[in-house]
Simulated scan of single mutants.
Amino acid sequence: MDGEITTEVSLENEHLGNCMIIGGGNHGLYNVVCIEDYGEKNYTLMKKIFKAEKEHNLVCGGQLAVFEDEICVSIDTVGIVAEYYYQSQDMYEKWR
């Protein structure tokens, strides 16, 4: 994802009603949301170390939006949680 042409990717398990949505890519930052139980539970991946007043302009799903630094993660973090989700069909354990 580059934040220009491809701005959002979804990994879904329709049978379980779960999905992970990864958006962004511009500025090397991403926003990751996990939805469970057909939308009954929604989780946003958050950094432990962040700058409280800092914001980033990310393009997610083709639209520019402002995101707090706390919820903008690196590609390395995205890789860890996306691989875990793909293999286990569940959120990364440390995310809960």
Rank of each mutant, 00 (worst) to 15 (best):
D2Y: 03
D2I: 03
I5A: 04
T7C: 07
E8P: 00
V9F: 07
V9A: 13
V9T: 10
V9Q: 08
E12N: 05
E12D: 11
E14V: 09
H15W: 01
L16R: 09
L16E: 14
G17S: 01
C19V: 02
I21C: 09
I22C: 06
I22Q: 07
I22S: 04
I22W: 00
G23L: 01
G23I: 02
G25I: 02
H27R: 15
H27E: 15
L29P: 09
Y30P: 08
N31T: 09
V32F: 04
V33M: 14
I35C: 11
D37P: 02
E40Y: 10
K41M: 08
N42W: 04
M46V: 10
K47T: 01
I49S: 12
I49D: 13
E53A: 10
E55Y: 03
H56Q: 06
N57A: 10
V59H: 01
C60R: 01
G62H: 03
Q63F: 04
L64G: 15
L64D: 11
A65S: 15
V66N: 07
E68Y: 01
E68F: 00
I71Y: 03
C72M: 00
V73W: 02
S74R: 06
T77Y: 03
V78T: 09
G79K: 08
G79D: 07
V81I: 11
A82T: 15
A82W: 05
E83I: 09
E83A: 12
Y86C: 08
Y86I: 13
S88W: 04
S88T: 15
Q89M: 13
Y92K: 03
K94A: 12
K94T: 08
K94S: 14
R96A: 13
R96M: 11
